[in-house]
Design a protein around this nucleic acid. Structure first.
Lengths: 145, 145
DNA sequence: TTTATAAGTTTCCGATGGAAACCTACATAT
DNA sequence: ATATGTAGGTTTCCATCGGAAACTTATAAA
């Protein structure tokens, strides 16, 4: 969808000009894009689509995700109103993260990234091989002067 | 993206079986996700959907994007087979970047991120305000529990 | 007493991002 | 003959970020 106009309508963004435009440096969408166009956020939201998850459960399901980054990422998502954090006063405290309705609308989109990657990984790997041969050839050493 | 010296010829454990899984640390989809789940890549691909662009044209259209990061991002996209780089031997050399067919399939997905952000920015900003009040209250001063 | 679980935070350090200067090459203006 | 401008980058400096691993608080089980 090549935005013919701009997503006006739903209440003008309180900040700058009135029409959100991610290509403008001052538009607040920029900061949001920074939060959501993120590998870990995409994987986390993808899991939460299937149901609420606890902290360490996410850590185990998303291999390679460190505690620090998981913590930071969840805080960002919570701040943006995309996930809720609910602590239950159980024995060792249990904390559950779940999508908000808003988060659900985003999760569908970002999960598309994961799906695209899983679907087209073979094409990408092949392109990388070709590129590495092409480039590794001419630029390997100190760039002929 | 991808530490230098990182294993790159890694055999794809699932490429043949067709079961790529982005939640597995060793799956090559991980590295691809790192490239495509990126704010700048999303904005660039979004522009290229509308037609080929030249280097400085992209720099002007994506406000706040530095030359270095634009250069790096385009290289990554080119390596992944998502954009082509064509240099024309004109007076000051002209370089044109365009989507490949593969890139076009991805661009549709990542542009969804921009659209989501522009559409829901008001909701997000409101959530942020509420969160900042809620949290800033308990943590501002030395109430360090 | 030691070990384990849950949910984080802290620390250390290398990798990354952004700002700005610099580079090559040609063209037009002064 | 400089000087400035355009095009497409690369390099440098510095601050922040990400990942690995240790540490924290609290409770239960071995």
């Amino acid at each position: 969808m090549t935005t013919p106009g701009h997503p006006r309508g739903t209440a003008s963004p309180s900040a700058a000009s009135g029409a959100a435009n991610a290509y403008a440096a001052s538009c607040p969408t920029r900061m949001v894009l920074d939060t959501i166009a993120d590998k870990w956020a995409a994987l986390i939201l993808g899991l939460l689509m299937k149901g609420p998850r606890r902290f360490n459960q996410l850590r185990r399901e998303v291999e390679g995700l460190s505690q620090k980054v998981l913590s930071q990422t969840l805080k960002g998502l919570e701040r943006d109103g995309l996930v809720t954090r609910t602590a239950f006063p159980t024995v060792p405290v249990t904390v559950e993260y779940a999508l908000t309705p808003l988060g659900r609308t985003l999760a569908r989109v970002v999960d598309g990234l994961r799906i695209w990657a899983e679907t087209h990984i073979a094409d990408v790997l092949e392109a990388q091989s070709l590129y590495d041969v092409r480039v590794g050839k001419g630029a390997a050493v100190g760039a002929k002067k």
